[in-house]
Design a protein around this nucleic acid. Sequence first.
RNA 1: GACUCAGUAGCUCAGCUGGUAGAGCACAUCCCUUUUAAGGAUGGGGUCCUGGGUCCGAAUCCCAGCUGGGUCACCA
Length: 574
Amino acid sequence: MSLTELSEQEIVRRNSLQKMKELGIDPYPAAEFPVNVSTLEIKENYSAELNNFQEIALAGRIMSRRIMGKASFAELQDSTGRLQLYVNRDEICPDEDKTLYNEVFKKLLDIGDVVGVKGFAFITQVGELSVHVKELFVLSKSLRPLPIVKEKDGQLFDAVTDPEMRYRQRYVDLIVNPYVKDTFLKRSKIINTMRQFFNEQGYLEVETPILQSIPGGATARPFITHHNALNIPLYLRVANELYLKRLIVGGFDGVYEFAKDFRNEGMDRTHNPEFTVMEIYVAYKDYLWMMNFTEEMVERVAIALHGTTKVQLGEIEIDYQRPFKRVTMYEAIREHTGFEISGKTEEELRDICKQLGIETDKTMGKGKMIDEIFGEKCEHHYIQPTFIIDYPVEMSPLTKKHRSVPGLTERFELMVNGKELANAYSELNDPIDQRERFEDQMKLSEKGDDEAMFIDQDFLRALEYGMPPTSGMGIGIDRLTMFMTNNLSIQDVLFFPQMKPEKPAETSDPDEKFLELGITAEWIEVIRKIGVKKVKDLKEMKAGKFFNDICGFNKKNKLGLDNPSLDEVNKWLS
RNA sequence: GACUCAGUAGCUCAGCUGGUAGAGCACAUCCCUUUUAAGGAUGGGGUCCUGGGUCCGAAUCCCAGCUGGGUCACCA
C-alpha cells in the first residue's frame, strides 16, 4: 500500500511505529505480559487504609491521554472497564535518559495502543483512583485512529451511532461503546443459565448435523450447498428437530441443543439468515408439563440477569413472574375478533376472513386461514408472557393430535411483546399419522405452498421403531436476548449480523507503471486522486475529459502544478 | 421486492432557496505542567458515496446506481 492512500493520522502512526523500532522497542512483542489484576478488581477492592494493590501489573488499551509535561494521565481500558493511569517522567525514567517518557509516551504512543503497566494503586489529589505507573511496556501499536468517544457522568459525547460502522466493524463498536459489551455478556449468561437448568435435570447436551440432505423439521426455504466428494446437494439445516427426536428414539430421556439454524428468507429487525435456537426434547412428558418447564426456565433467566422478574423493553415493562397466562387459539380469536371459529368449514372460514379484511387464496387451507386470523388480529395483543395453546392440525405437522378436541393439536407458543418467543408440542409419535401428515404437506406443496415440508423417510423409519411420548420445545435465543437486554433489533444481539459484503478498495498500480507512459511524477498522485488507480483504466479514458479532470483538480486544490498540454495528455493515454 | 430517509475531515455533525467547503473532538508544533468530556495558541487534514444530466458555475437541483437505516410485503 502506498503512503498516498493513507490518511494523515495513519501516516503519523506508521512513522511513530518506525521510530519505536529505531529506539529498539518492539511494537509487537512476542513474550507474555503477566497481568495480575483487572481494573474492575482494583476499583471494587482498593482501600487507602489497607494500602492494597501495591504491586500490580495490568494491560489494556489507551483510551485517552492528558499530557501535563513531566506528569501525565491516561485512561487504560481492559476487558472489565477503564482506570486512570498516572505517568510521571522521573518514575518511568529514573536515569538521565528520559526518552521513554518524552519520546515514547508523549509522542509515539497514541489512543488505541495496547500497553502493559506495572505500579501501584493510589488516589490522586482530585480524588480519582489511579495507577501510579513505575514501568510502561508497549504491547501492540495501533495504526488506525479510533473514533473518539468521551463520557461524563454516564453521558456519551460523539458516540459512534452509524449502524454500518457498528455492525461491520463490531470490534470498534465494542471498544468505544461500553454498553455494547454488556448485551453480549448477558447473552452468554442467558445461555449458561439455561444450560445449567437443563443439566440439573440430567438432560444431555448434544450436537446434530448442520449439513442435512433433507432440510426437515420446519417449513422454510433452505440454503443449498454441494458436497464434492459425495457429489450430492446438501442443505444447511432450517431446524434440528427431527434429529433430536431420533435421539429420543435411541433411548435418551432428555436431549437439548443450542443450534444455529439457517433460513434463506427476508432480513429485518427480527430476522437474520443465521440464528440460534435452543431445542429440548424430554421423553414421557406432554405439552402441559412443558409449559411449566418453559415458565420456570424463562423466569429463572430473567432473575439471573436482573435479580427480578420485571424487565424493561422499550417503553414497557415485561414481567416474567410465573405462572404465565394461558389462552387457547380459539379463545384468542373469539376475544379479539368476536368470531367463533370452532367447528367451521373451510368455506365458512374463508367468509370470516373476508369479513375481517384478510385476503385469502385457493392454496390456503383451514389451518393457514386460522393462522392468518391469529397473526393479523390477535398476536400483537400479547405483550406480557402468554401461552397460546391448541393450534389447528394443518399448521402443525409434527404435533400430536389433541387428546380431546378434534382438529386441534397439543401445541403452545409463548408470546412476548406480540412476538413468538418459544414453540412447543406434545410430539407426534404415531408413525402412521406422521406419514399422513407429511403427505398432506406434500399436497399443500403441490397446491403452491413452496414452504411445505420434504418427507424424511429415515425419520419415519425411526418413529416406526417406536418413540416414547415426548414433549419438545424450541426457543429463539436471539429473540430472548433482545427481550432480556432491551434491544429492539436482532443486529444488536448478534456480534456479526449479516451484511452485504464491502467492495474491496481498489489497489493502485505502482508509480513505475505510470512513469512508463511518460506521465511526470508530480501528476501520478493527482491521477490516483481523481480515482484512476490502474494504468489500464487510462486507455479507456477520453483525453478531453481526463485533461479537464486533472487540470481542474490542480486548480481546485491549489496544487500549483504546471498543467500539461493536451498533446502531452494524448501521448499518456495512447 | 416496494416506499422512504441518510451518506461532507479519523469520529460526531453543520452547510443544501446553486457562487472559493466549516465547527467540536482527534492529529501536528508550541505554551502550561497533578489533570479528568483538562486549558491556551498556531497549523495540517476533504474524489462533499459513485456515475450521468441541467447550468457560466453543483456538496447543494434532476436522473440512475451503491451502501446503510426505517416502514411495509415475505417470513410453520
